[in-house]
C-alpha cells in the first residue's frame, strides 16, 4: 500500500523505492568501518615507506618463495576445509531436513549453539584434544593401537579438522535451507518413473541442492582462507598462513606496505570466490526460472 502510494507521489519518471532507506544505517556502518579502511589498505599497498607510489610490495611478494608457499598453503588449507565441511555437512543437512520435531530441534541447536561459543574457546578445546597427552592419543594408546603418542597438534591435518568443525554450520545451514524448498514428492516422482537411487541422486537431488552447496562452499572458503585465530592456536608458527604473515608484518616488522599487499591478495581471493559463486548461483537459478 504505502509502497505504491510513495511511488505515485514522486514526480513523474523518478520512482524511488523507499524500502532502500531501510538499508541506509547498515550501509553507513559498512562504509565507515569496512569500505573506507579497505580502500586505505589498498592505497597503502601501492606506497613505499616514504609515501611514493610503487608496486614494489607486489613484486616483493610474488618473487618471494616463502610468501608463495604461504599463499599456496593458505589456499590448499581453505580448499581442504571446504571439502571436509561439504563431505560432513551435506548428509547432515539432509538429516536435519528429514528429522521432525524434537530431533530436528536438537540437531539445529547442536549446529547453531557452538556458533555462540567464541572461536578462541573452541580452538583451545581442539588443542587440548590434539595434544600429545590429549584425549585422542590417550584413547589410542589405551586401546593399544599405537605405541607412542601421535603428533597431532601443530599439523595441517589437525588445522583442517579443527577449522571444519568450526565452519560446519556455514555449510549445513545453506544446504538445509535449499532442501527445505524442494518439493518432497520429487524423489517419489522420480522413483515411480523408474529411477533407482543413484539416478535419483545425480539427476534430481544433486542438481537441486547445488545452489546450497555453492553458497555454503563460498561461505566456508572465504572464512577459511582468512582465518587467523584457529591456525595460530592449532598450528602456531610452524606453518604460516597468509593471515598470520599479515599480522606479523603489521605488528612486529612494521612493514606496512608488505602487510597491505598481502591483505590485498587475500581480499582478491575471497572476492573472486564470492563473485564466482554468485555467478554460478545466478546460472543455476536462471535454469530453473
Amino acid at each position: 500500500m504505502s509502497h505504491a502510494a510513495a511511488k505515485t507521489a514522486s514526480p513523474a519518471g523518478r520512482t524511488r523505492d523507499p524500502f532502500l532507506l531501510l538499508a541506509v544505517p547498515s550501509l553507513l556502518l559498512l562504509g565507515m568501518l569496512f569500505a573506507l579502511p579497505i580502500a586505505f589498505l589498498l592505497l597503502k599497498s601501492f606506497r613505499d615507506a616514504d609515501g611514493a607510489l610503487s608496486v614494489a610490495g607486489y613484486i616483493a611478494f610474488f618473487s618471494d618463495p616463502y610468501m608463495l608457499t604461504a599463499l599456496r598453503r593458505t589456499i590448499v588449507i581453505a580448499f581442504e576445509t571446504t571439502l571436509l565441511t561439504l563431505v560432513l555437512g551435506y548428509p547432515t543437512a539432509f538429516a536435519l531436513a528429514r528429522a521432525r520435531g524434537f530431533v530436528q530441534t536438537c540437531i539445529l541447536i547442536a549446529m547453531i549453539l557452538p556458533l555462540s561459543v567464541g572461536v578462541i574457546v573452541k580452538a583451545f578445546a581442539w588443542s587440548i584434544v590434539f595434544r600429545s597427552d590429549g584425549v585422542i592419543n590417550k584413547t589410542l594408546l589405551g586401546l593399544g593401537i599405537i605405541d607412542e603418542p601421535l603428533r597431532l597438534l601443530f599439523t595441517e591435518t589437525a588445522l583442517v579438522i579443527g577449522a571444519a568443525n568450526i565452519f560446519l554450520p556455514f555449510m549445513v545451514l545453506p544446504i538445509y535451507a535449499v532442501i527445505r524448498q524442494i518439493n518432497p514428492n520429487l524423489g517419489p516422482a522420480a522413483a515411480t518413473l523408474g529411477a533407482g537411487p543413484f539416478f535419483r541422486f545425480f539427476r534430481v537431488t544433486l542438481p537441486l541442492t547445488l545452489p546450497g552447496v555453492v553458497a555454503g562452499a563460498a561461505f566456508v572458503f572465504s572464512m577459511a582462507v582468512s582465518m587467523y585465530v584457529i591456525p595460530n592456536l592449532i598450528v602456531g608458527e610452524r606453518s604460516q598462513m597468509l593471515s598470520m604473515l599479515i599480522a606479523r608484518s603489521f605488528l612486529y616488522l612494521r612493514d606496512e606496505q608488505m602487510g597491505s599487499t598481502m591483505s590485498a591478495v587475500l581480499l582478491v581471493i575471497a572476492a573472486m570466490i564470492v563473485i564466482a559463486s554468485s555467478i554460478i548461483l545466478k546460472r543455476l537459478s536462471g535454469r530453473q526460472a
Partner: peptide, 9 residues
C-alpha cells in the same frame, strides 16, 4: 502427484 511434482531444473 497432487502438485504434479515436475522437476523444476
Amino acid at each position: 502427484f497432487q502438485n504434479y511434482a515436475l522437476f523444476p531444473h
